[in-house]
Design a protein around this nucleic acid. Sequence first.
DNA 1: CGCGGCTGATTGACATGTCAATTATGTAGG
DNA 2: CCTACATAATTGACATGTCAATCAGCCGCG
Lengths: 178, 178
Amino acid sequence: MMQDTPRPRRARRLPTTEELRIWRDFIETAETLRSELTARLQSESSLSSGDYAVLLALSEAEGHRMRSSDLASHIDWERSRLSHHLGRMERRDLIRREECAADSRGAEIVLTPTGLQSFRQATVPHLSAVRELFVDALTHEQLIAAGDLAATLRARLSVSGRRRGSAAQTKAARSDDG
Amino acid sequence: MMQDTPRPRRARRLPTTEELRIWRDFIETAETLRSELTARLQSESSLSSGDYAVLLALSEAEGHRMRSSDLASHIDWERSRLSHHLGRMERRDLIRREECAADSRGAEIVLTPTGLQSFRQATVPHLSAVRELFVDALTHEQLIAAGDLAATLRARLSVSGRRRGSAAQTKAARSDDG
DNA sequence: CGCGGCTGATTGACATGTCAATTATGTAGG
DNA sequence: CCTACATAATTGACATGTCAATCAGCCGCG
């Protein structure tokens, strides 16, 4: 728990082969996990994980509606990404855009009955998949370690990643999957 | 700290709130990490992480050339993805396609001088970023835990993820970043 | 040879993401 | 009021991914 790195602490050494191996394993596994979950969601519900994130947020919102901006920051998406995605979801009748009374620049995003139904049908299978591929795959200790890793890495990202307005919030910034 | 989930152990229970929180933190952190690394690579080298994966493989190949198919399986990409990507890289003069003497269906992908130079310029900054955002962010124990998690999750993916031909190799299947 | 099936690779259609404008509306100060 | 700037959201151009279809060259077998 004590030694951070034993030796060449002075200069800007590069990662060792072993460190790189772990890095690749880690990032590729996370990526594979994400893509497997996405594929299952898609085949079971015809929803992408982006759709799911939007629908989840709306389903929890008061009146099943939300300002576009608030939605974007809630799920931690760039606004233009959300705008494009909402266009696609609107075409599929999952959401609807309405004018906002309070601020006529704004739009309110409203969950449609179709959208709500799709979301409800997707929920249980999706959460089951999360359980199967993540929660149940790990021991309790590993699960705790996963949370710990995430927190540690996020902390590092939040101090050094202050470049583009990307993600890297200090607090967990939910996005997709839930 | 002890009880995993006290009760409904029999049926197909869904993840608890806490388990879901960890899941979201984990997957979103990995995603943020990936996107931060990608953004740095892009701004420092005008290379995407896809470009980097391809260039890395070619730079290590004999004669800086490789059959398209071998390249695809080496970096664990779908062939059509690789084909599209190579088209874009060829336009930027990072790689070149040549006919394959042995099998005239085939193509050999060749690293151009421009491609090699771009890759060489990208390497050190990229590995430094990996060190900064991942390796150095973690204690030795956490690093080991990360490797352990990856292996465990990958094992689960490889047995249950046998659906589409996606990733989920049993062994670490390098893709981007390196 | 010549058919049939496998393999290597590309293509087209479309979903998804990013970045840099652009449009339109709010708001503060003179 | 009116200009200057900030904010809400969309748009366009383009990079990246997936899937299914296609095209062409290999190979085995009668």
